[in-house]
């Protein structure tokens, strides 16, 4: 019953908006804003299941690999920099500079060196979305309770175990907060790089449909993008709830 209430509470607004869209657009004659019913019809034809294989799966793989790389590199480099405060101070200006440069600004350079294939796309997604994870990991590692570090020394914990059982779990709530932001950035960069890239991918599909005045296809692609984003967020929350189990329970 409680769960049901929670689901209702979470979904009333999206449902209301969709219904509004459905009703208000039902008799639309506008070329650019077709009725939602037609969009959904097209979605069924276009995406199930050819479109999913041709366009959704490639997009999904790119964002998963790119975001996965951002996670690994962000956490590893973040832990190292967090443990070496003097070194981190020395390169902080560089980090700040790189971080505040919008990731997509590097797109021209990336295409120059890596072309417009998957390598460039994954690289761009990883590079642009890595910063919140990296910076939050550094902060997390820095803020470990000094008493715990004394415990670690007095019980002669190895560096590997200090990282695995103290630094990383302590930083995990902050890393997840950063990763949530990173995932949003990754989705934006995914769409942008696909739009300038080669066929295969939701971003390309949307732009190509627009260029060929296939407005129904374009809208169906945008709806699929929303669905992809929702699914990614849902998966993220499942993983978070599992890993941060202790943190969620402790603070509830």
């Amino acid at each position: 019953m409680k769960r049901l209430m929670a689901v209702v509470w979470e979904s009333w607004l999206p449902i209301l908006l969709v219904v509004l869209w459905l009703v208000l657009s039902a008799r639309s004659a506008s070329f650019y804003f077709p009725p939602l019913a037609s969009i959904l019809e097209r979605l069924g034809e276009e995406w199930f299941f050819d479109g999913i294989v041709e366009n959704l799966v490639p997009s999904l793989l790119r964002i998963l690999v790119g975001f996965g790389l951002a996670l690994v590199v962000g956490i590893v480099v973040g832990v190292v920099l967090g443990l070496l405060p003097r070194f981190e101070e020395a390169i902080r200006p560089l980090l700040e500079f790189l971080r505040s440069t919008p990731g997509v600004a590097l797109l021209p350079i990336a295409t120059l060196f890596l072309g417009i294939g998957d390598g460039m796309k994954v690289f761009m997604i990883a590079l642009a979305s890595m910063w919140p994870i990296l910076l939050n990991t550094i902060d997390g590692v820095r803020s470990v309770e000094p008493v715990l570090l004394r415990v670690a020394s007095s019980y002669r914990l190895s560096l590997k175990h200090r990282i695995r059982y103290i630094y990383v779990p302590h930083s995990a709530p902050q890393i997840f907060a950063g990763a949530r932001l990173s995932l949003a950035i990754a989705a934006v960069v995914m769409v942008v790089t696909e739009m300038i890239g080669s066929p295969g991918g939701i971003g390309y599909f949307i732009l190509d449909s627009q260029r060929t005045f296939n407005i129904l296809n374009m809208w169906s692609g945008i709806v699929m993008l929303g669905v992809l984003g929702y699914l990614l967020n849902f998966g993220f929350r499942l993983v978070e709830a599992h890993i941060l189990d202790w943190h969620i329970k402790k603070n509830s």
């Binding site: 715990l148 103290i166 202790w246």
Partner: peptide
């Protein structure tokens, strides 16, 4: 040698 610290609540790892 083992040590039991003054601050027991902070000397245990809350995630373990």
């Amino acid at each position: 040698m083992a040590i039991v610290f003054q601050d027991y609540s902070r000397s245990l790892m809350p995630w373990l």
